[in-house]
Design a binder for these strands. Structure first.
Lengths: 364, 364
DNA sequence: CTGAAAGCGCTAACAT
DNA sequence: ATGTTAGCGCTTTCAG
């Protein structure tokens, strides 16, 4: 008799049908309904259709909360954008990719930001709200700029995560597991080589090399310059997340110093557009006076002539992150080797061969 | 004795402490722990600290799944981007605003896309996955381009939602409840008036007026032109989500038709940048030959001279959407009146007064 | 193949 | 103020 004292059991103004209601109506046990709802094969067809009918009649929708409690898992990833002012187009596309893959896999994506200092000890780091209670999310996708203390904190708390590795800042090298990386080193090398092949000798790199992604590209540029016996030059003025202004100011600085230069390799498209603007303000034209290469190719066709740049398939980065996250969950906490996404130099209209190319060749 | 047969109860390799473990350790009842964890005032300080200690010792994190089942509510909103190819910077900022407010209110945001046809009947619409099971999300924020069939479907299924109203497409006028709108009509009128005041007579509107947001701006423009006794002109070439190309092609079309024109009002900044590019390709300079105004001010300073445009505080739009969504949940399903976000004309460098302003004045 | 029933971790009503 | 306990809706043994 106790059973009929239950709260909502036979409360007519209850709005949503439960598995029990379906079972009652179909004259089967709740277990059977569960099996049908979860598409398990071991159900008599007669019963199955009776259940399906009843479910449809009651417009039954399984309750995600009950399910996740019973299964002790939801299907929810968290995309955490760390230490960024806002959702930049680059990360928009990554998020998009994550969402896309998740959708197909039946998972969902939460979007959160998280600001933290790299100098706080892992054990003392106050985690983002979404991680403060248990079971809000199954796995975390770390994007934005991250540091070891956060990943350590996650590990010590047994929170599964995957990492967008390019923007991970640490002294040593991170062991290449549970992370996705796009191959900006190869892309940057290709870009530098391309400029050199076009006959450029004075090639300036612009980008804040205190940040690891700019730095990786810079080092690839360095290697190519060295290989070609050329003198590298770099200029950077870091100004928060405003990369356009960074590029603009940096170029002004270079021009003020009267360093001779025929080409610019920028660490990011935004930086390139800013640099371009800086050139324009000094009456310099691209590519007539200065050749220009960017990085990312996320801006769409917002420039003319079309910007030569290194394309990063950010959508694919996101999809792979999601795939890896879901793999982590289903293959019980095992580490998964790094996934490397190739990049591609998009030769467009902002680079020109130098007229004195032959002379330059001879010199080398 | 039954109680000790429970599955994990005293399984040492269980990883996460439950409320019961805390209660045991603190020598209190689970109810008390619950009260402490939920910061309820009616707990003896002595007990409270004992519980807190025990919780810390066990590094207890409340289980969100159990909690949401018991409370029959999670703290999870869904941001649904409808019928868009990707997360455009405009909506990035709205999402950002939603996330910001939610964070402060202790809510979380899921990001989903949803493509649907306006011609499907509400009852036959296949809802996005996140809405197919019950309790995945408490309230839905509708962004992107939406139609009545979807909002109807949500209503008939008793799923609470709030709407970004500017991009809502329907024949009649939507009743102004549970929605946030930014005042693009006033902003567009101001922009048109500004051009007219500067002495422009031939002002062309560019933007795909089949979309309601472009259309609203267009109509505001029309009213101002009419008020000033001027002949309106509009050009549009819709090309998917690629607004830059839309602007570019449209301007080429106008120029091909040799319609005299001294100013362009574009429905969006992207369109404006595209139009600008189109002008440049024909050797026309902004603002020397043509004055230009955009709309949104989401792109950051990506242009030079700086684009005059109508600023929309998209962050605020997002925050208000979140606020309204949460209000809906806490004030038990009541309708909430529309919130209107003001816009602001940012007078920058792409408009110039006409030299023959006085003559123009006299004519009118 | 199906039914019965024990949990999942937490909240909230009730009793003390 | 605190303890006890019946659920929340679902999954998953375990018998049969």
């Amino acid at each position: 008799m106790k059973r009929f004292t239950k709260k909502n059991r036979n409360n007519p103004r209850r709005t949503t049908a439960t598995i029990r209601d379906v079972a009652l109506r179909a004259n089967v046990a709740v277990g059977t309904v569960s099996r049908v709802v979860n598409n398990r094969p071991d159900v008599n067809e007669e019963l199955r259709s009776r259940v399906l009918r009843a479910a449809a009649d009651l417009s039954y929708r399984p309750n995600a909360r009950g399910r996740s409690l019973a299964r002790n898992s939801s299907t929810l990833l968290s995309f955490i954008l760390s230490n960024r002012d806002f959702l930049h187009p680059f990360h928009s596309h990554v998020l998009q990719g994550v969402q896309e893959f998740c959708e197909k896999a039946g998972y969902f994506v939460m979007y959160t930001r998280f600001q933290y200092s790299p100098s706080i000890k892992a054990s003392e780091l106050i985690l983002p709200l979404v991680l403060q209670s248990h079971g809000m999310t199954d796995c975390v996708v770390l994007a934005g700029t991250n540091y070891k203390n956060f990943s350590d904190a996650l590990e010590s708390r047994d929170i599964p995560y995957v990492l967008l590795a390019n923007n991970f800042v640490s002294q040593g090298v991170r062991k290449p597991v549970n992370q996705v990386r796009f191959d900006d080193v190869t892309g940057a090398g290709e870009a530098a080589r391309y400029l050199i092949q076009l006959g450029h000798r004075q090639i300036c790199y612009i980008g804040d090399i205190s940040m690891p992604w700019y730095r990786a590209r810079y080092e690839a540029y360095l290697r190519e310059m060295e290989k070609a016996g050329l003198q590298p030059m770099a200029q950077t003025l870091a100004l928060s997340d405003d990369r356009f202004t960074n590029g603009l100011k940096s170029v002004q600085e270079v021009l003020d110093q009267k360093v001779p230069m025929t080409a610019i390799f920028a660490g990011t498209d935004d930086v390139a557009l800013g640099a371009w603007e800086g050139l324009r303000r000094r009456g310099l034209e691209v590519p007539r006076d200065i050749s220009l290469i960017g990085f990312d190719d996320q801006q769409g066709p917002l420039a003319f002539p079309a910007l030569t740049t290194v394309r990063v398939d950010t959508g694919e980065v996101g999809r792979q992150l999601a795939k890896m996250a879901i793999a982590r969950l289903t293959s019980s906490g095992q580490s998964i080797p790094e996934v490397l996404i190739p990049t591609k130099l998009m030769k467009r209209e902002t680079c020109r061969p130098l007229l004195n190319m032959q002379r330059a060749r001879r010199k080398s």
